[in-house]
């Protein structure tokens, strides 16, 4: 089980980092998702891997699995899910406003803050 889990974390991280380094926003978002999956599995393993053990104290239990990482992973999943949603929405807005999704590659052309705001207000 250790080998399976470790290689899963490794492969997902490697694929995530590879996708993160692409030029298009869509692949970057996919890379972020993979990286957050890898992180969640990694967090799950931080309390050691045990099978068939209860997380709460009972008189019959021979050993315990650590309940804390499970609670943390739950929080981390919720947060990473919400963040992925945010980045998808922002990437879409950015694509619709600038007409390209190569936002990761080129430096952002500088229009000044207030000029940008004027344009945005005009289009609304």
């Amino acid at each position: 089980m250790e080998f399976l889990l470790a290689s899963a974390v490794g492969v997902m991280t490697a694929a995530g980092v590879y996708l993160l380094l692409r030029a298009r926003t869509f692949t970057v978002v996919l890379g972020l998702a993979l990286l957050s999956y890898a992180t969640n599995v990694f967090l799950f393993a931080m309390g050691r891997l045990v099978i068939d053990q209860p997380p709460v104290i009972s008189a019959l239990a021979k050993g315990y699995s650590d309940p804390l990482p499970q609670a943390l992973v739950l929080t981390a999943i919720v947060i990473s899910f919400a963040m992925t949603a945010v980045v998808v929405v922002m990437a879409l807005r950015s694509f619709l406003e600038s007409g390209t999704d190569q936002g990761m590659l080129e430096p952002v052309p500088h229009t000044t803050p207030s000029a940008g705001a004027e344009v945005a207000e005009g289009s609304r």
Partner: peptide, 9 residues
């Protein structure tokens, strides 16, 4: 405040 450049940044 919006704007394309700000969105991409």
């Amino acid at each position: 405040g919006g704007g394309a450049a700000r969105m991409r940044a």
